[in-house]
Design a protein around this nucleic acid. Structure first.
Lengths: 346, 346
DNA sequence: CTGTTAGCGCCTTCAT
DNA sequence: ATGAAGGCGCTAACAG
């Protein structure tokens, strides 16, 4: 660990500390000969500027915190990459924090920004503790993926309703009529939007919604399994299933198989997110792709805009989604209607 | 955002800045009446200490960087949790960085520590750029999971050889003799250790190793698929497969199925890591569980030891692993030997 | 182009 | 128990 300071370098090179600082930060503002002397001294003393002193002096850390709902979810990894790439290019660093749906932790991270441990916060938690949401002067915060109704914060998100319609329209075009929706946690806006899209797609096709076909989940694998168990126990008939996350889709597929239902021959399945789960699914999962790198990048761009003093657009940015067609969706076979009714339960 | 300083609080409370500082840091060193006045002023002015100033003054950030090989790998998430929990409890923060197997990025993060942006570095990259590995005075670095032969750094790891033996012994006890090893990237110590364990298990059972049964992978799903394609194209006969990562195991299972081989009826499979992949596998994957939270926690403990001045044990810590029995391993059926030979290729 | 100087906000001796 | 004062390392006016 080097312990030399700008002062020792200055002395060694026979110049002032200001010249050393300039030679390093704005080399063109220093005569070449002087610059060389300074650089030689820097090398000789193995000088490394103390970032804390620099940040303190500049009153900025050039660090932002990315706070996610649950870091165990691989979904966030690409978001991080998008944020990090944009940040890196602009000379910022990213600190990823795990909120664990815990108010105290969220407050802790907001507090870090208050204390100037970081310049801003990118929030992907879906909510803010009430004490903060109504605080008069919040530090720089960008909301990504989620929507926080109570607070008026710059937001990057997808159109969840339109995305869900894309998925369900696809199933309807294939000829499916009895389509299950495995929802995310309600009444959060993200999950609610997707359910609206499901209902809208049915309505547009003149299909009456059947409450039996809506099953509540929480995005996790286990709730996909549980959803299918529930459907089969109730002997609900269906030929397709739209899950609001890839993880639930995988859970559902595994459970369907365990009960002798083939995917896609007996049941078509569409997921949501296009995470690594879709890749390891067998057959590969048809799903809605969220461009996570882009979402992360855009969020960081908004943040940089705020931090550099430019006003952010109060209206949120909306990122497109794609329907990715893979192996889990085919037209329904009529025999399976009967099959679905007769072989319910375990 | 509060903009008040300790000075404004002092003025408001009618005391000196030193008293404010003490009232906040060591309340018992201040008379109760004075303390109340200060606290009232703090509340009135919405004062929040500037962390940059504090860190600068203290010459410590209480932040450590966790640098991983590839953040896209869900494997690291639980490690992060383990590190973060231990760090949080000790008043430290964790910055997770993504090395992307890129020397420049690794250097960048080491440089951050040099610049005192962080107090230390927990390295899970498997290697250090040569320029650093032989540097005279490295900043506080802990190596986790991996082993860096060139540098003498405190290390937390598992016994890869013993872990692999656990997996292969299990297959041998079930009666398997023709066991494939799908390796990690060689010649990295982690992958080499697992291959040694595979060979040692065979040797202990008196089974002659067959070079045809060793297939080279890189831990990713795709290399699991490719490995199976390779084996089938060469018409190698085998009844079991040990993959050095769960991801490769999943890739291998999917590819085996695509070629009409059932798992576990035709081929038993054991993975390594016990990640989320093992959970979504169908049937659930028999695998070697690494206690990732514990590994992360221990690494952070070592780091705290170094940073608080206590000498770390030069000898590394070794964390146990478990064999988790699930649904992908059963005894071999003799008919499958013939089957494996006759139906090779696509 | 280069040097001098004044802090950034806080903590911590050293007095009192 | 409290106050005064110095300084952590660096950058950015301002002079020269």
């Amino acid at each position: 660990m080097s312990t030399s300071t700008i002062r020792s370098v200055a002395k060694y090179a026979g110049v002032s500390t200001a010249t050393v600082s300039r030679a390093l930060a704005t080399p063109e503002a220093v005569r070449p000969g002087t610059r060389e002397k300074v650089l030689a001294a820097v090398a000789a003393l193995n000088f490394v500027p103390n970032a804390q002193a620099v940040q303190f002096r500049r009153q900025a850390t050039r660090t932002v915190i990315l706070l996610v709902r649950d870091i165990s979810n691989p979904f966030y990894l690409d978001i991080y990459k998008g944020v990090e790439e944009t940040a890196f290019a602009a000379g910022y660093r990213v600190l990823m924090g795990d909120a664990r749906s815990d108010a105290a932790r969220i407050e802790h991270y907001v507090e870090m920004v208050r204390r100037r441990q970081a310049d801003g916060l990118i929030l992907m938690t879906g909510w803010l503790p009430p004490s903060l949401a109504m605080a008069p002067a919040l530090p720089p915060i960008i909301v990504a993926l989620e929507f926080i109704p109570q607070a008026d914060l710059p937001t990057v998100m997808i159109d969840n309703e339109a995305a869900a319609r894309l998925a369900v329209d696809h199933l309807i075009r294939l000829g499916h009529r009895r389509i299950v929706h495995l929802t995310g946690p309600l009444p959060e806006p993200m999950s609610a939007g997707r359910h609206q899209g499901y209902l809208a797609a049915l309505a547009a096709a003149g299909i009456a919604p059947d409450p039996d076909l809506t099953v509540y989940g929480d995005f996790h694998v286990a709730s996909g399994r549980a959803g299918v168990v529930n459907l089969l126990a109730r002997r609900v008939s269906f030929t397709a299933l739209f899950a609001s996350s890839d993880a639930m889709a995988i859970g559902a597929i595994n459970e369907l198989r365990a009960h002798g239902r083939r995917v896609p021959e007996d049941v078509s399945v569409v997921g949501f997110d296009d995470t690594v789960f879709a890749e390891v699914s067998d057959p590969p999962l048809t799903t809605i792709r969220q461009h996570r790198r882009e979402i992360g990048g855009k969020a960081m761009e908004l943040m940089i805009g705020i931090l550099s003093g430019r006003k952010p657009k109060p209206a949120g940015i909306c990122v497109e989604v794609d329907l990715v067609l893979r192996g889990t969706t085919i037209p329904p076979a009529h025999v399976h209607q009967r099959h679905a009714i007769s072989s319910g339960g375990t």
